[in-house]
Design a protein around this nucleic acid. Structure first.
Lengths: 255, 255
DNA sequence: CAACGCGGGCGTACGACGTACGCCGCGCGG
DNA sequence: CCGCGCGGCGTACGTCGTACGCCCGCGTTG
């Protein structure tokens, strides 16, 4: 079986917790510590102060409990983060959406973007393959429903979803970087570009980098206008959906 | 100016190193330590053993030098990583490609994918906004050239590039996860899915998750056939390019 | 009703890590 | 030929994740 996975979580351990393989003992029922309380506290910390502030000691403190007590319910920090991620997926809405596949996919994209904005730490935590917890599976099932019955093969359906969600994640990451920057420097994105303008003019000269200097300036002003990442998200999303509609139309024609 | 940025690099410091603001002293010229040697050693370590193995002590050892000597040339680990990233961008090819914008963009996508496969640590390191080093700027300038003169606005050109590169990065990340998994568990991706099959059948039942179980199985078999992430990359890339061609055609018609 | 055993809770400690600080000793400019 | 500046580095501190073993109180059993 698995062996010396070191800096990374043991998927089997995470799965056991996620699917509640272990029933609560008579003792632990009621008050006292529990996986749920630990996960909730951990998510609160990460939401408020970021992944770097998420410390096992911090989690213990937040629960009024010794650091090592947390390890009674969770094998390690990596597995805790796995459970946090699945829990976050669990809080997403899954409404039945009126409209065609494009409307549904667009809705899914926006819901996922909102999730990442609510929990920016997910963008840094999801570095390894996500563990197949119950909420992730439910989310996957729900989202696949948006592209079912439009003539795609199963593998294509998966690929479409992967493409859309990948774009959302990229965009969310860009947006999150802007937020981080503002928090860390106290400058808005526009002010930041402006404060670096003299420096940029020194090195990013039109002679050396003709296209980059022109487009970079344009994109930078866009940022100053306070809707840089949002524009990239919207533009990219429409392009992706346009591209998907090409295959969908193809399949419909060949039916 | 900047202030208490803690776990993150000081961009001004990184920029100073990247653009060679400091000229080499008479003493340091010749043999001895240098930013270049440090960065080269660090990249070698990260390529071979991943970002987690990249330690200031490790870098010192690799150069036959005390740990703290590294700090003479580099203000800290975060800035070192910044310089590593820009250096990696510097080794990318920038050929003049024959063909239309689609051929050029496709080539760019493949070159970037190859970069991430050669340096998987970049996928985990590029979590904050990349520092505008000389090689990144040159790369940006080169890649913008692929979509210049096809009727897009400057902001749209930037958005197109962002979209394509975002897709490449997402795909590269998926592919890298598969490689990591194989290294850590000794199982191929297919074997891994197979070993979890009984478990999946227990929880991922068609009754509870009708679509997910069917599509997940199909996608899982695709992985077993040893081209999961590659397929997602190719499929997504063609969709993205299709989507871009829609705007391009629109612009051409309205000219 | 009493003794027991087990499991939740946790104090201490260890081995990483990044890096601040201050000391050397070499080699160049005067 | 001398002094000093700078490259090089040994030590040490604070932080992290977590292994290990102890304690105490509860639920179960005779």
């Amino acid at each position: 079986m698995a062996s010396e996975r070191k800096a990374t979580a043991d998927p089997a351990r995470s799965l056991a917790i996620l699917w509640r393989t272990r029933e609560p003992t008579s003792r632990s029922a009621g008050q006292g510590l529990s996986v749920d309380r630990i996960v909730r506290a951990a998510i609160d910390i990460a939401d408020a102060e970021g992944l770097d502030a998420l410390t096992m000691r911090r989690v213990g403190e937040a629960l009024g409990v010794g650091t090592m007590s947390v390890y009674t319910y969770v094998p390690g920090k990596a597995e805790l983060v796995d459970v946090m991620i699945d829990t976050a997926y669990g809080e997403m809405p899954r409404p039945a959406v009126e409209g065609d596949w494009r409307v549904r996919l667009e809705r899914i994209a926006r819901d996922n973007l909102a999730l990442y904005q609510r929990h920016p730490w997910m963008l840094r935590a999801e570095t390894t393959r996500p563990v197949l917890g119950p909420h992730l599976v439910a989310k996957y099932d729900y989202e696949l429903g948006a592209v079912a019955d439009i003539g795609l093969t199963d593998v294509e359906m998966d690929a479409v979803l992967t493409l859309v969600l990948g774009h959302v994640k990229s965009s969310a990451r860009s947006a999150s970087e802007v937020v981080d920057l503002e928090r860390d420097t106290g400058l808005t994105d526009g002010q930041w570009w402006q404060s670096h303008a003299p420096w940029l003019e020194t090195f990013l000269t039109p002679e050396r980098y003709p296209t980059a200097s022109r487009v970079g300036t344009a994109a930078g002003q866009q940022h100053g206008a306070a809707y840089g990442p949002e524009y990239a998200f919207e533009f990219g999303l429409q392009r992706v959906l346009d591209g998907i509609s090409v295959v969908v139309a193809e399949r419909a024609a060949n039916r």
